[in-house]
Simulated scan of single mutants.
Amino acid sequence: MEAADLHRQIAKITERISGQPLDTRLQDWLNQEFGPDTAAFADLQRTCEAGVAEGWLCQREGGGIRYGRVFKPEVALHGFSVDVVEMADVVGPHHSHPNGEIDLILPRDGSARFDAHPSGWLVYGPGSAHCPTVSGGSALVLYLLPEGAISFTPAGEARA
Rank of each mutant, 00 (worst) to 15 (best):
residue 93 P to E: 12
residue 80 F to W: 04
residue 73 P to W: 10
residue 110 G to C: 07
residue 81 S to H: 06
residue 70 V to G: 00
residue 80 F to Q: 02
residue 96 S to E: 12
residue 82 V to Y: 02
residue 83 D to E: 12
residue 61 E to N: 01
residue 76 A to W: 01
residue 65 I to S: 07
residue 69 R to E: 14
residue 103 D to V: 08
residue 94 H to A: 13
residue 79 G to N: 09
residue 98 P to T: 05
residue 111 S to R: 15
residue 74 E to V: 09
residue 82 V to K: 03
residue 70 V to K: 00
residue 95 H to Y: 05
residue 74 E to L: 04
residue 102 I to A: 06
residue 80 F to G: 03
residue 108 R to E: 12
residue 79 G to R: 13
residue 95 H to D: 01
residue 65 I to Y: 13
residue 63 G to K: 03
residue 69 R to T: 12
residue 77 L to A: 11
residue 96 S to T: 14
residue 83 D to T: 12
residue 80 F to S: 01
residue 98 P to I: 02
residue 87 M to K: 06
residue 68 G to L: 00
residue 75 V to M: 13
residue 94 H to S: 11
residue 76 A to D: 09
residue 104 L to P: 00
residue 72 K to N: 07
residue 99 N to D: 07
residue 63 G to T: 05
residue 105 I to H: 01
residue 103 D to S: 13
residue 62 G to N: 06
residue 102 I to E: 03
residue 63 G to Y: 02
residue 70 V to A: 07
residue 60 R to V: 09
residue 59 Q to R: 14
residue 102 I to D: 01
residue 96 S to K: 11
residue 84 V to I: 14
residue 84 V to Y: 11
residue 69 R to L: 08
residue 62 G to H: 05
residue 103 D to W: 04
residue 74 E to N: 05
residue 87 M to S: 11
residue 91 V to N: 08
residue 78 H to G: 10
residue 103 D to P: 02
residue 109 D to P: 09
residue 59 Q to E: 14
residue 95 H to W: 04
residue 65 I to T: 09
residue 63 G to L: 02
residue 106 L to W: 08
residue 67 Y to P: 03
residue 88 A to T: 15
residue 82 V to G: 00
residue 109 D to K: 13
residue 83 D to Q: 11
residue 76 A to K: 06
residue 77 L to N: 07
residue 67 Y to L: 10
residue 85 V to C: 04
